[in-house]
């Protein structure tokens, strides 16, 4: 029987994030390059590089996703969000050329999650970004599947180190399928060793009694 006792809340992946997912909470800490579109009075202390009391209009800074998402509004332009470089045109071409060579863990590790969240900020590139995310996922699917279904009883850290957190989850579920099957196939062998152990144990006891 499945002996799983812990079911973590899965990340939402799409535009909606899952409030209770630890992965999604970590995801909102990813920093985005933003440009302020109005003056933030008396918040100059946040920006260590300038001495002024206010954050002036047009300052470029990095803000976490949760903050930029809260401040961003389509009508009152408080700040404009720029794309992190992995989602820009140049990197997108790399991803479409061969998604398998990219180290998504280094790029992300929430490449898909952050990319989906970026769609909140209206940018003319949005459809392209969504397309690139999907194509990257599809391109890398085969490799994730094959490595997760073939690596039995070996060190998988080399296989997963280049995977995005989402792909890591997939890898894990693939492994659970494989492990279940393999242990079933070997089930008979495992039982035999157990019984032989018990047998030896009994024998030794008998000898103890006799001596």
């Amino acid at each position: 029987m499945e002996s799983q006792s812990y079911f973590p809340v899965q990340p939402g992946v799409g535009v909606e994030e899952n409030f209770l997912s630890l992965d999604d909470i970590l995801l909102t800490h990813e920093r985005l390059p933003v440009r302020t579109e109005c003056t933030f009075p008396r918040l100059g202390f946040l920006d260590k590089s300038s001495d002024s009391q206010d954050i002036t209009e047009g300052t470029k800074m990095e803000l976490p996703l949760w903050l930029s998402k809260g401040l961003y509004e389509r009508k009152r332009r408080v700040l404009s969000v720029e794309m992190p470089k992995v989602y820009r045109e140049g990197w997108r071409t790399v991803f479409t050329a061969d998604p398998n060579v990219v180290d998504l863990h280094k790029m992300g590790p929430y490449y898909y999650g952050l990319g989906s969240q970026l769609l909140h900020f209206d940018s003319p590139e949005n459809p392209d970004i969504a397309q690139a995310l999907l194509q990257t996922f599809i391109g890398r699917f085969r490799r994730t599947m094959d490595s997760s279904q073939n690596a039995y009883n070996e060190d998988t850290s080399a296989l997963v180190e280049r995977l995005d957190s989402l792909e890591k989850r997939l890898f894990k579920s693939g492994q659970s399928g494989l492990n279940g099957f393999q242990s079933w196939e070997k089930g008979q062998a495992a039982q035999l060793t157990a019984s032989s152990l018990v047998l030896n144990y009994r024998k030794r006891k008998m000898m103890d009694v006799q001596s």
Partner: peptide, 24 residues
């Protein structure tokens, strides 16, 4: 059965990434 969990999870992810596309 051996491929079920993996395939279901990845189809789920792909579905979400695809709905992104439409939303975008």
């Amino acid at each position: 059965n051996t491929i079920r969990t993996f395939l279901l999870d990845s189809l789920n992810c792909m579905y979400k990434l695809r709905s992104n596309l439409q939303q975008g």
